[in-house]
């Protein structure tokens, strides 16, 4: 019955009318008033972490710079001042710049960093008026004295976007080995302490935590 089929489409679109059927409800997240909750592993804007005693984690080893496929990280290390060290160990990141007009957020730097100094927040809402602004220096990247990322005026921070900063690195076992699942393999961070690893590398890992609500469910 091709005539009936002709009207089927009308039924579909009418059914989609808000609240007219099961699949008919507004799914829009009204940014900027509200923001959809970000998954824990999202690759957002970077931060440079500090140890719980306030020392910087970065040792200026330049691993992140060398692994970056876009070459968007520039690091120079310098010897620590023995009297007043910036980081534990011999060297610290003296210059640290990320050019966000080159960064592709692949997170290889986070995986490469031996001290978990560079991690990614869940903030992705930022944009620039000129190129200079897009080059973040160490002043902007390093966390504040309370361990929280700095909220720069052109960034749109919301509650909780700093909380999962090192999630990607902590995803189960970073080496892929099931033997290391559940072991804490990193030092604590200023403001957050020692973060727990993600659970399980097993076949069923749905039971341990309640499934994260999808944004649309939260909205309504």
């Amino acid at each position: 019955m091709s005539i009936l089929n002709f009207f089927k489409g009308f039924a579909v679109t009418f059914g989609k009318l808000n609240h007219a059927s099961k699949s008919g409800k507004v799914v829009t997240t009204e940014y900027p008033e509200e923001k959809r909750s970000k998954p824990a592993r999202l690759h957002g804007r970077h931060v440079l972490n500090k140890y719980e005693d306030g020392m910087e984690k970065c040792i200026g080893c330049e691993l992140c710079a060398s692994v970056c496929p876009a070459n968007c990280i520039y690091v120079r290390g310098a010897d620590n001042d023995l009297e007043n060290p910036t980081s534990p160990g011999e060297r610290f990141g003296f210059i640290y710049e990320i050019n966000y007009l080159r960064c592709i957020h692949c997170d290889l730097c986070v995986e490469a960093c031996p001290t978990q100094a560079i991690t990614e927040t869940k903030l992705f809402e930022f944009s620039f008026m000129d190129r200079e602004q897009a080059i973040y220096t160490k002043d902007e990247l390093v966390v504040a004295d309370d361990g929280k990322p700095q909220n720069l005026p052109w960034e749109d921070w919301r509650q909780g976007e700093d909380e999962h900063t090192s999630e990607w690195m902590r995803a189960t076992s970073p080496s892929g080995s099931a033997d290391f699942v559940g072991l804490v393999q990193w030092a604590g961070e200023l403001g957050y302490g020692t973060r727990k690893p993600e659970s399980s590398q097993g076949p069923n890992n749905s039971s341990e935590t309640a499934p994260e609500l999808s944004p649309e469910e939260e909205v309504h």
Binding site: L42, H43, G176, N204, S206, E212
Partner: peptide, 30 residues
Amino acid sequence: LEKITGLRMNHNYIRPGGVAADLPDGWRDD
């Protein structure tokens, strides 16, 4: 996909030697 790989597109997730990270908690339900 974003929940698993951290990015909506251009994931850099499947790599030589395996995948970049394990499936996250709650992947099955999702």
